[in-house]
Design a protein around this nucleic acid. Sequence first.
DNA 1: GTGAAAGCGCTAACAA
DNA 2: TTGTTAGCGCTTTCAC
Lengths: 343, 343
Amino acid sequence: MPSKNATIHDVATLSGVSIGTVSAVLNRKGTVSEGTRRRVLDAISELHYRPSAAARRRLQPTTAKSVGLIVKEVNNPYFADVIFGVQDAARELGYHVLVGHTERSYDLEQRLTELLVAKDVDGLIINPLLNEDTDLSHLFEIRWTNVPLVLIESIRGIQANMVDVDNVAAAMEAVDYLVGLGHRRIVHFGGPQYSGHSEERIEGVRRAFIAHRLVMGEDDVVHAGASLEDGYRAALGYFRDREGDRPTAITCYNDLVAIGVLRALRELGLRVPEDVSVVGFDDIDVASYLSVPLTTVRMPRREIGRRATQMLIGSVEAAGKVAPEKVVLETELVVRASTAPPA
Amino acid sequence: MPSKNATIHDVATLSGVSIGTVSAVLNRKGTVSEGTRRRVLDAISELHYRPSAAARRRLQPTTAKSVGLIVKEVNNPYFADVIFGVQDAARELGYHVLVGHTERSYDLEQRLTELLVAKDVDGLIINPLLNEDTDLSHLFEIRWTNVPLVLIESIRGIQANMVDVDNVAAAMEAVDYLVGLGHRRIVHFGGPQYSGHSEERIEGVRRAFIAHRLVMGEDDVVHAGASLEDGYRAALGYFRDREGDRPTAITCYNDLVAIGVLRALRELGLRVPEDVSVVGFDDIDVASYLSVPLTTVRMPRREIGRRATQMLIGSVEAAGKVAPEKVVLETELVVRASTAPPA
DNA sequence: GTGAAAGCGCTAACAA
DNA sequence: TTGTTAGCGCTTTCAC
């Protein structure tokens, strides 16, 4: 049981050969006699020796190319699709993808970034967490150290490649549609604090209200969250004390929240879309599999991943400075059965 | 635009200082004069120099500890929860997690394994792909090289740590339950080829049939797949030509397939559970959010991740050989509204 | 403040 | 078949 990590030297010493020989058996050169090989192998086993990948790598530039991808939540099909897109494009271009999840921890975002850089990935795609006291130092650090970077959620105050959508316009479109259907009493179930997209979507709802001369009350933006349960709880709480004065339509931060809302409405005896219309965001796969298929704003999830990857690998291979670029992808309102004119 | 990757030497040469000085500015020692610092920084920028993380690492063993996790599909909430469990346990123990997805590509599994080893993770958790011509060489390679390993799907013929459940028993329990309800005509919508769990679940169904003296016809195991769409398509195809002779109950490889089946049944005008009972597998979160909440076999998803991680880090820190261990976790049949006695 | 030199763990000639 | 040695790109003394 070695206290310190064994090195190739320890193995050489223990097996009574030179480090060159140990290296030879490590690399399966056929040049080692079976007897020596055995002794070396035994020593390796006894010392529980692990060749240091770091040291091996340098001379052997065979190491596969790879990009790091940092996303927010593992439990959200939205990100699953983004990841899929990244992997898809990366594979086409001959790169592997290593994924890290920050799970709302800003600290984790910093450390995962450092880790991936230390692991020598060729570039990084990050979906940054956002909040008031966001410290972008790790992102600047990255730029400083010349690691190619693409952000997949816009952030102000940093020069970097970005791929994003226009959430404000997308949310406005959703509200426009509901107003067009005749709705006047619309409530928005908003996303989490750390989400820039959530902020933008709320802003879009706000602007649509103004455009249609609707008044937005205190309670018209509910702080829900990003998960099924968040939507469910928020809706249960919201409708508990609103017997008479109900909205006729609800827009949600994302589809997960919408599905949670749907469940709450069902349990409260409210029919969708007859009593209440519901609109989601993202268009995750399951949205069209519900018994009342969900009207939602489709995010080009895979395309976001693909484009980000292409930009990233582009600047990896340019090997020189490339001016940061911002790509804005299209969203699309997908109308299904969860919306209808108010009764 | 340098053709070759610049090294610290190039930076030193261009800025007219020694490599020691460059190293000092790289590491923010306060010992460099502002003028020199500027020149070095300029050179770094001009050469687009990236310090080689590989070379840096060796002396500076500050690198955070990390484990690699290789799973099959990104688009499956089952894995999202496993990943969550891994991350959770890893964080508690002071490790980071890097995730790779193989997306049914056996080749990718091999290469991701190599990549993660090359990146010097402290240990590896793998959910291996399975099929006839599965070549386990990368797994042996890993053992050989003394990288701690935990498998989260049982595989024969390899000595390794494993965390798994008893799928055969779990599937039997599901069928037992349906038979207890009075069902005699049960069909199983099976999973993909590459899944060991799928095989085992089919085997469980088979054994339950035998135990209850039910005959299993040719068509009673439908080859569906692992996704929403797989379930949907398979069910549509299956029921198309079976107007009269319908099963009264369906068990599915997983919840995604079950949700797909549910949609197909709805579109075919069949009611659940009145006309057909449906049982899923996994108990992903959304299962209880459906308008007809899904009866399903709960997999201890997070716990699988947690236990695997604890075993892994245990053997990482034991630093010596530890005898491989196999942990079998419990499943549980969760009865909801998608099952009922046959009409 | 800066440079020279040793050494990290390993691979790859090249000798022996 | 095996040992010796020169690096790989970098950090870190320790002189100057």
